[in-house]
């Protein structure tokens, strides 16, 4: 059995176990699994621009928060939940596209900082537009009228579907001209340009994918929790955690981000349960330790292995 076949088999087994979870386990486990899939989606969303393209985006929180508010605002005005999510995706993607046109001219630190500030700017705007968003008081979403069990299951499956679609998209991108071109950009953008790659377009596609999927996760999150506020959904941690997960799992890989999400959240959960008051501090310590002791090898993805596999398979 080749490595690719093994991976595929593991994927099927993993998905089957996940799908059986609602039948076998309680609400706590289900909730944890839903959170994990949400973060896996965010990590994969970041991976498009950060992992494949090598642009240090710190903008996931902005798209997540924007998606959450876009979905919540229309949902609060009576739009059905699934349509509200679609709206969140559209808004998130359009915003990422427009922003990408401008910000992707920057490289390195300047790009990192610009993306980092967007979440703060959106938070400021959301706080200010009280009529639309409820401002700092937050926004309540209409109650579903379901019991906690049914609700938990519904959002579990919804998040599962989102994570699965994101994973599939990642797989397709990695095996396409787009993925190949993004890797070229990551390695040497000037050479990529000369070799005939429309670098601006490729980068914008990657950034838009990143924004769209993060916004989708935000939309689901908003209707799942039923209440959102600016300081919650635009939290910079939503930008940082997905990056850490990808660093843990492997940059620019297909399964790395999702695996990293699981590992990180297990650590996070342990910290939460044991140090409630000092939770963020201990989390910070965890981050420092991870960064100082992460093997350097994790940071560079082996594209060749993937390509060889692809060629030998065809």
């Amino acid at each position: 059995m080749t490595k690719a076949q093994t991976q595929f088999l593991l994927l099927i087994v993993g998905a089957a176990v996940l799908l059986l979870l609602p039948v076998m386990s309680g609400n706590y486990t289900l909730r944890l699994a839903t959170i994990m899939m949400m973060y896996a989606t965010l990590a994969m969303a970041w991976n498009f621009i950060g992992g494949f393209t090598g642009y240090p985006s710190f903008g996931i929180a902005a798209f997540f928060g924007l998606g959450a508010y876009a979905g919540a605002v229309v949902q609060a005005r009576g739009v059905p939940v699934v349509l509200a999510w679609a709206f969140a995706i559209v808004i998130g993607s359009l915003f990422a596209y427009a922003l990408g046109l401008i910000l992707l001219r920057l490289r390195g630190h300047a790009f990192a900082i610009a993306t980092l500030v967007i979440a703060e700017v959106l938070r400021e705007l959301t706080n200010g537009m009280t009529d639309l968003t409820g401002g700092g008081m937050g926004l309540n979403l209409p109650f579903f009228g379901w019991g906690p069990d049914a609700l938990g299951r519904f959002f579990f499956y919804a998040m599962f579907a989102l994570a699965a679609i994101t994973l599939a998209t990642t797989y397709i991108v990695a095996h396409s001209r787009l993925g190949f071109g993004l890797n070229c950009i990551k390695q040497n953008e000037d050479a990529a340009d000369i070799v005939g790659i429309n670098t601006t377009r490729y980068k914008i596609i990657a950034f838009t994918l990143s924004g769209g999927f993060a916004a989708a996760a935000g939309g689901l999150y908003a209707s799942w929790t039923g209440y959102i506020e600016p300081s919650d959904v635009y939290d910079i941690l939503f930008s940082i955690k997905p990056i850490l997960m990808v660093l843990l799992g492997g940059m620019g890989t297909i399964f790395g981000p999702a695996l990293g999400a699981v590992v990180f959240l297990v650590l996070d959960e342990i910290v939460w349960r044991n140090f409630l008051q000092l939770h963020t501090g201990i989390l910070g310590l965890l981050i420092v330790i991870l960064i100082l002791f992460l093997p350097a090898g994790v940071l560079s993805f082996d594209w060749r292995a993937l390509l060889k596999k692809k060629v030998s398979a065809t």
Partner: peptide
């Protein structure tokens, strides 16, 4: 101006695929 950590053949592939 190579793509440093791609293989030699992948570097050349880039030219064939895009231009």
């Amino acid at each position: 101006q190579p793509f440093p950590s791609m293989t030699v053949v992948e570097n050349v592939m880039a030219g064939a695929m895009f231009a």
